[in-house]
Design a binder for these strands. Structure first.
Lengths: 224, 224
DNA sequence: ATTTGGCATGTTGTATACAAAATGCAAGAT
DNA sequence: ATCTTGCATTTTGTATACAACATGCCAAAT
């Protein structure tokens, strides 16, 4: 019997630092394009430069930071094209998650998702955008969990982190929001029918719609 | 006029170190599961522990190394399941590459690919496995280049590195090899027809076949 | 006036020293 | 004999010192 995992979760200082930085980037406190001073940041975070530099390398590998030799790191500023490319990949990954989930989903899973869907619609009716985002994310996470592919989950998570800063700000307007909720509803029925290919298509289209929403909010502010 | 990129490519020591380590891992000189001693390795590579540790973090982010707090790093040993999961994702990404490539491919591209296909068949006829792998990789790289999605290319590359060590050793037997070559032929005609969905399916199936070949060679040597 | 060269300053890159944690071994207790 | 406990050694984690590089300023020359 060792179904229990009692190991106390320890993470290294660089990992913790990376998490903090990730949050700061996503919240926009560290703005895209901003150059990060090692000494300054290390003092603010209360650690030395060495673990901070390892955190930098982590985030650079994830694609959140850009490392310029002898010129330090800066927060990546995504161009409109970058966003399109990232969404193309995200859509494909999410489609795969759907396909896998359809093959493996249990009735219990479906019940959970139905509950989440109800929450989603509630948030939508209340026009509570933060709550909507939270539930939305929970649903997509759940789908990934059902897909039960850790490699997929990790790849997806890494990519998502890069875009999260943007999505955070993409304020859905009425029509698009309604449509997104409707799409979620059909996703659920498609999943219940165990229609993998159908769910895949739906998710891909769903993400393409999301891309449009993001691109709309990006309009004007051209970054490269 | 600045279509030229004259910037002399400089890389940091950690990046160079990471490349070396990646090569050593892929070639199997650093065996899966092996624990890497920082001091020892840094002396062998001729650098200090600091840049080496940053290289470790890079490779850990890529999924080639596993970091255990206060217990250093070790080369990841992929279980059969890990390989299946990775291939599922790879297949999806390669499928996306095919889909995109079909939409963007030019006649010049097709000519290049035809030439590569000829090389592939030659290598097959000669039963020259190393050459076959080389050309095979060139074809897949070319496809990714045509797809023109840097995010996809990077994601694909990272995942591929994790599996390369395995594929290296997967010795195709006669029947599977013949089939792979045939699949490549139909890929080319499907691409020429600009049939994105068709090419996607083909590539996904192609990779599933590859997975089977890899799993076969893994049989027996159970690692977890 | 503009440009170029050198210098001063600040910032990153690498090495090393020190601290903390883990590992292995041996001695003692049960 | 086996298991535990404490110590010595090894190894990793963090901080800091030093070196290399980049940047901005000022003076001098054209």
């Amino acid at each position: 019997m060792d179904g229990f995992n009692i190991a106390i979760p320890r993470s290294t200082l660089p990992q913790v630092a990376a998490e903090r930085l990730r949050a700061l980037i996503i919240e926009g406190i560290l703005a895209p394009g901003a150059r990060l001073n090692e000494r300054e940041l290390s003092e603010q975070l209360g650690l030395s430069r060495t673990p901070l530099r390892e955190a930098f390398r982590l985030l650079a590998a994830e694609g959140l930071l850009l490392q310029l030799p002898n010129r330090g790191v800066q927060v990546v500023a995504l161009s409109r094209e970058d966003v399109c490319h990232a969404f193309e990949v995200m859509a494909s990954l999410e489609g795969l998650a759907g396909e896998l989930a359809a093959a493996r989903v249990t009735d219990a899973d479906l019940d959970d998702l139905k509950a989440l869907q109800a929450d989603l619609e509630k948030a939508h009716k209340r026009r509570d955008l933060p709550a909507y985002y939270r539930v939305n994310r929970a649903i997509h996470d759940r789908l990934n969990a059902i897909a039960a592919n850790p490699v997929l989950a990790q790849t997806y998570r890494a990519l998502n982190a890069r875009l999260h800063a943007l999505r955070f700000r993409s304020n859905l307007n009425g029509a698009k929001w309604d449509r997104a909720v409707a799409e979620h509803r059909s996703m659920l029925t498609t999943l219940a029918a165990r229609d993998g290919a159908g769910l895949r298509d739906l998710l891909v289209r769903h993400l393409h719609a999301k891309l449009q929403a993001v691109l709309d909010t990006m309009k004007g502010q051209d970054k490269e």
